[in-house]
């Protein structure tokens, strides 16, 4: 169901984003990157890392394995989408600003978020006691999300090369078909995110079960060895 919605959404986004929407008066066709750049940022940074932050808080409060695994799954997909935001932003920056990259407040804070959650994923792979590892990851997950407040406000707090929010509800200065393509992008990528989250979580859950099962098997093996030893000791 969600998979079908995602596929249809992506197809519609490609159709409207690349063909049906008009080129911009100043930016020409590079405006088409807007339909994937901004939705990737909203879905990756705020939605995905929001789920990670929520899962981290719940995990820290009650040690829930479900929320820990969900937080990890959301972070991985969030990093992928944050990567999309950076790549499309750079490709958009070159024809618009004239450069691929500037150490601008918004660009810097966004790349910092990307790195923090990449660090979060690295912590989850560290060779540590699983409970300790999950706890440390959860703390980093919350810090990473707090950094997003800086990303959000960076264009207000500091002077930035990056433009502010176009989707100002008071006066949306955007052509109708462009706005439609943008919302299509937002719906398509949101749907893709939840569909991937479902599958990524499922994989994490299976890994957890297999790990738990292998510990049980190992324990059983030791028990039987020990029993054999007892038996041998008894015989001599």
């Amino acid at each position: 169901m969600l998979g079908v919605l995602s596929a249809v959404g992506v197809a519609a986004l490609l159709l409207f984003g690349l063909i049906l929407s008009p080129p911009d008066v100043a930016q020409a066709d590079s405006v088409r990157l807007f339909y994937i750049h901004v939705p990737s940022a909203i879905v990756g940074l705020y939605l995905a890392f929001g789920v990670t932050c929520l899962g981290s808080i719940i995990h820290l409060r009650n040690g829930s394995v479900f929320w820990d695994l969900l937080a990890g799954a959301a972070a991985e997909i969030g990093v992928v989408f944050a990567g999309f935001t950076l790549v499309t932003g750079m490709l958009w920056g070159r024809p618009t600003w004239g450069v691929y990259w500037q150490w601008d407040p918004r660009l810097t804070s966004t790349s910092l978020s990307f790195l923090l959650f990449l660090g979060y994923l690295a912590v989850r792979r560290l060779d540590l006691d699983p409970a300790v590892r999950s706890k440390r990851a959860a703390i980093l997950g919350i810090i990473g999300f707090l950094n997003l407040i800086i990303v959000r406000q960076s264009v207000q707090w500091w002077r930035s090369l990056h433009q502010g929010s176009t989707l100002n509800p008071v006066d949306a200065q955007i052509d109708g078909l462009m706005l439609f393509s943008f919302f299509l992008g937002l719906i398509a990528l949101t749907s893709v995110f939840f569909w991937l989250l479902l599958h990524r979580f499922r994989v994490a859950w299976m890994e957890h079960q297999i790990e738990a099962a292998s510990v049980t098997t190992a324990l059983a093996a030791r028990r039987s060895e020990a029993a054999d030893y007892d038996g041998l000791a008894g015989n001599t």
Binding site: V10, L14, G17, L18, P23, Q27, A28, D29, S30, R32, L33, I36, H37, S40, V80, G83, F84, V87, T88, L91, W92, R94, P95, V192, L196, H199, R200, V203
Partner: peptide, 24 residues
């Protein structure tokens, strides 16, 4: 104009999504 930035952008995003999905 600027298709040389638009096409790689869309390819990078949807190509990566496809690869990620298949691996997952």
């Amino acid at each position: 104009m600027h298709w040389e930035y638009v096409i790689p952008g869309y390819l990078a995003v949807f190509g990566s999504l496809a690869i990620y999905t298949v691996l997952l």
